[in-house]
Each structure stands twice: as C-alpha cells, then as structure tokens.
Simulated scan of single mutants.
Amino acid sequence: MTFLNKIKWILGILLVFVLIATTNLIDRNNFVRVRDSVVTIYEDRLIAKELIYEMSKSVNAKEIALIAKDSSFFNKKNQTLNTQIEGILSRFEKTKLTPEESKIFEELKSNFKALFNSEKNGYASNSENNLTATGLISNIKDNLDKLSKIQISEGSKQLAISKKAIDTVELFTQIEIYLLVFLAIAIQIIIIYNPKEKQ
C-alpha cells in the first residue's frame, strides 16, 4: 500500500468518524430536549392540573357549606381543609411557573389568605362576612380556572417541542444513512480504483 493510499484510507475513516460523532451529538441533544419536555409535561403540567383539581374540590366544599350555612362544617372540618389547601399551594409553588402563571398564582394565594381571615370572623353572625367570602370564593374559582387553562396551553407547547425534536432526530437519521451509503460507495471506489501507471 502506497503512502497516498494510506492517506486516502485515513481521510475516509476520519470522515466517517466525524459524521457519526456529529450526528450522535445532534441526536443526543434532541433526545435531551424530548426527555426534558416529557418531564415538564408530567411534573409541571399534569401534577399542577391535579393540584388545581384538589383545590377546586376544597373550594366547592367551602362554597356548599357557606350557602347551606353549615356551622358544623366550619367548626369541625374547615381548619383541616385550610391546612390541606396550604399544603397544596406549597406543592404548586414548587412546579415551574410561567410569568403569567406566577401572577395568577400570587392572586390565588392572596385570595385564599383573605378567605381564611374572613372565615375566622365567622359567617353565621355576619352577613357582610358572608358576602365577602362569597366574592373571594368566586375570585378563587376564577384563578383556578385560569391556571387550569394555562396547564393545557403549556402542555401543548411542550408536546410541540418534543415532536419537533423527534422530527429532527428522524431527519438526521435519514441524512446519516444516505451519507453512510455514499461514503461506503466512495471508500469502495477509492479501494478498487487503481490508476494505470505510465510505462
């Protein structure tokens, strides 16, 4: 094997190595994006949606007790429910929030705090407190509704990101296959091609 043939071999092998390394790095980056997107959909959207549902159930229980003027509910169950809501709010705060979501969440916390303070003053004896609580519950339900819609919207965005990354991986895989076939043919031509020496 002549020196020129050795250089051709080395260049051919290096070209294949660089191609495989480059596509591998691109694929790895895209798989990381897909993984992060799936984790975000689960941790920051599905769990958040579940927490919103739990808060909605608690608010509905409060609203029913308020309408029914159920003093036994406020004497026995309400404090436990408030503790559960505070725990849910704390868990929700740990999810990744968008700027709009953060703003609505701060309003939600403020409304819950005002509702808890209003509950301490009692409902049965004071119709003004009753009206205040009804308004706060309405605001809380509106906050929860907005947060719920954000979960759907952000989940869709994350799904689009993962779909785009998967499409990119498929595209680069096809390009890689075509380039490898081309390189294999080129290497075969280099190996087989034997120029006739001048006599």
Rank of each mutant, 00 (worst) to 15 (best):
I26V: 07
K94H: 07
N129Y: 02
T80V: 13
T173R: 14
N24M: 10
M1Y: 06
F3V: 13
N75V: 14
N117A: 09
I189C: 07
L180E: 01
F31E: 13
I175P: 04
G12P: 00
V59P: 02
G87N: 15
F172T: 05
E50C: 02
E107Y: 05
L159C: 04
L171N: 13
I192F: 12
R33K: 15
L171M: 13
N24K: 10
Y42D: 11
A48C: 05
S138T: 09
I47Y: 03
D167W: 06
E106R: 12
K198M: 07
L97R: 08
I140R: 00
K6A: 10
K149I: 03
L19S: 07
E128C: 03
P99D: 04
K146I: 05
S56W: 03
A21N: 13
L11A: 05
I191Q: 04
S138K: 14
N24S: 14
A48Y: 11
A21H: 08
I67R: 03
A114R: 13
P99E: 06
R28T: 03
E43Q: 14
Q199C: 09
F112N: 07
I26H: 03
L25K: 15
F92Y: 08
K103L: 05
A160G: 06
G155M: 07
S71L: 12
I47L: 08
I166K: 15
A124S: 12
K113A: 07
F74V: 11
F112E: 00
Y178R: 13
L183G: 01
E93I: 02
E54T: 11
V16F: 04
R33G: 10
V59E: 03
A48G: 12
Q199E: 15
F112K: 01
K49C: 04
A160F: 13
N117F: 13
A21L: 09
L97V: 02
V38G: 01
L89V: 03
V59T: 11
I137N: 04
T132I: 13
I137W: 01
K163C: 02
I166H: 06
D145W: 11
K8N: 00
T134S: 10
L66C: 09
E154A: 11
T168G: 11
N126K: 01
Q84C: 08
I47W: 04
R35P: 02
A184D: 09
A114G: 04
K141E: 00
E54H: 12
